[in-house]
């Protein structure tokens, strides 16, 4: 067992993607995780569960992005998907007023079910189609602010705003996690209550040989 790690942290976050069909959820994650758009030759087997490793101010973050089935008949299954998630990316299509209405419904439901533990991002996608815009920037941004969410503009097609969106989300999730950590704080924690929350684990710095104590499995 290699000892004496400096206690670097790895955060693991679960983020759910919500939004009406065809607003570009799948395009967004594929662009983010694989930098691909509408590519028929994509070798990716699936785009429903994707992960991304980030390094934010020296802290390692494992981001797991969960695509959700958007069809109306699966709506009731939402709670099963977003259970235990740290963040939600709510996508609408700026050319489609209805899809924005859907986002509002999701926000209501998420706040009701998960309270303020979850970081919400409202994302207006397809800004390359600004000439057909049907959701005004002011409306969207003021709505986001009123529900404690952040608003982003993206285009999966042009790869605009996507890095920023996920980076920002990760920072906010880290803040939430750290606040939670401080709260349960100094050893007096009830492990049972923290168990299903964020996973925070002490970590070795990269330099030490990996898997020191458990190399044979």
């Amino acid at each position: 067992m290699a000892a004496g790690g400096t206690g670097g942290k790895t955060y693991s976050f679960k983020v759910v993607l919500l939004g009406e069909g065809c607003v570009g959820k799948t395009s967004l994650v594929l662009r983010y995780c694989e930098n691909k758009f509408n590519d028929k030759h994509i070798t990716t087997l699936q785009a429903s569960f994707l992960t991304k490793k980030l390094n934010i101010t020296g802290k390692r973050v494992n981001l797991a992005i969960w695509d959700t089935a958007g069809q109306e008949r699966f709506h009731a299954l939402g709670p099963i998907y977003y259970r235990d998630s740290n963040g939600a990316v709510l996508v609408y299509d700026i050319t489609d007023e209805d899809s924005f209405q859907k986002v509002k419904n999701w926000v209501k439901e998420l706040r009701k079910m998960l309270g303020n533990d979850i970081c919400l991002c409202i994302v207006g996608n397809k800004i390359d189609l600004d000439k057909d815009r049907h959701v005004s920037v002011e409306d969207a941004e003021s709505y986001a602010e009123s529900v404690g969410a952040k608003h982003y503009h993206t285009s999966a097609k042009l790869n605009k705003g996507i890095e920023e969106l996920f980076l920002d989300l990760c920072k906010r999730m880290m803040e939430t996690a750290q606040a939670e950590e401080r709260l349960k704080g100094n050893g007096a924690s009830q492990s049972a209550s923290s168990r299903r929350g964020v996973q925070i684990v002490d970590d070795e710095p990269q330099a030490t040989p990996a898997g020191g104590c458990c190399s044979s499995g």
Binding site: M1, G4, G5, R195, D202, T208, G211, G212, C213, C214
Partner: peptide
């Protein structure tokens, strides 16, 4: 069972300073 997992993992990380990968394996 879950408390046991949690406590053991905490102990491995805290007391024995195992890396998160090692803890996962254990």
């Amino acid at each position: 069972v879950q408390d046991f997992y949690q406590n053991l993992a905490d102990r491995l990380m805290g007391h024995f300073k195992c890396s998160s990968e090692s803890v996962e394996q254990v």
